[in-house]
């Protein structure tokens, strides 16, 4: 009995003393934090992807609270919805931004771009590209080792086994830009998602001269400039033997894709063309062969 009593008394005393100490320590080292930071953080996706340019979602929330306007601050993973919520909390306005998506600008699948040698090394694009041009002759194209897959926090990008190229999952991609940064070949670009998710873009980064590019990859942009002439909106520019479609100017008319002799211009999520055009397309591919 005495033992139990002694134990109870001594332990409770110890507890009280420690609690008092803890209380004073907590008082002394208290750090004031704007309560709005927590509120803002509530709205963030919490993925800590770093796509906003701040260290994690907490860092983003701090930046939002500190900032005077929300211009130039954007959470790509959360999108407009999150930004509007944050704006409400902070009593500011956030501009609507066109939703974006990561786009892989290389279409040189296994069959379209022949392997010229065997790469034997760790599965890392960074290592392979620091060593040499990769196992195809194209020194601009996708290496297919999947650094982008590794870095994606949303599981939104994966290597397609058949083609050996990364594919972006439109549902999951938040356009955080992690893959854009990691890609040693700068193949991935963030583009506007487009109306009804429709996009037209040049799926090639090869800066070689036309003939050379054509030799190493059958779907390379050869810099012929036909698309420029076809474009009614002056959305296409040609630099270093490579065409680029400005997504802000592009009106998704698809005239360029029709003209492209190698099929380097991809059109995504469009309904199939009318028959007449389909025949024409077939003809051009036959001529290619």
């Amino acid at each position: 009995m005495a033992i139990i009593l002694n134990t109870l008394i001594s332990l409770s005393l110890l507890g009280v003393v420690l609690a008092i100490i803890l209380y004073f320590v907590a008082q002394k080292f208290k750090v004031y934090e704007d309560p709005r930071i927590d509120e803002v953080e509530e709205f963030t996706p919490g993925a800590n992807c770093g796509g906003c340019g701040y260290p994690g979602c907490r860092g983003f929330a701090e930046a939002c609270v500190k900032a005077e306007t929300l211009d130039g601050i954007f959470c790509p993973a959360g999108g407009n919805e999150v930004m509007q919520n944050i704006a409400k909390v902070l009593g500011m306005t956030a501009a609507e931004k066109e939703p974006q998506i990561a786009v892989v600008r290389c279409n040189g699948s296994h069959e379209k771009r022949e392997k010229t040698n065997i790469y034997d090394g760790p599965k890392s694009c960074a290592i392979e590209s620091s060593l040499y041009t990769g196992d195809t002759a194209c020194s601009y194209g996708c290496l297919g080792q999947g650094d982008c897959v590794e870095v994606c926090l949303f599981d939104a990008i994966y290597i397609d086994e058949e083609s050996g190229l990364p594919l972006v999952d439109e549902e999951k991609c938040t356009a955080c830009g992690a893959c854009v940064k990691i890609c040693p070949r700068s193949i991935i670009e963030l583009r506007d998602k487009g109306k009804k998710n429709r996009r037209v873009y040049v799926s090639c980064m090869n800066k070689d001269k036309g003939a050379e590019a054509r030799k190493i990859c059958s779907v390379a942009c050869i810099g012929c400039g036909k698309c420029i002439k076809a474009c009614p909106f002056e959305a296409i520019t040609l630099n270093n033997f490579i065409a680029y479609i400005d997504y802000e100017k592009c009106k998704l008319c698809r005239k360029c894709a029709q003209e492209c002799p190698t099929g380097a211009i991809l059109e995504i999520n469009f309904p199939p063309r009318k028959e007449k055009e389909a025949i024409k397309e077939q003809e051009t591919t036959e001529v290619d062969k």
Binding site: N117, I118, Y119
Partner: peptide, 8 residues
């Protein structure tokens, strides 16, 4: 043969 390329 296709040549093998690896780092030293």
């Amino acid at each position: 043969n296709k040549l093998t390329v690896s780092m030293s």
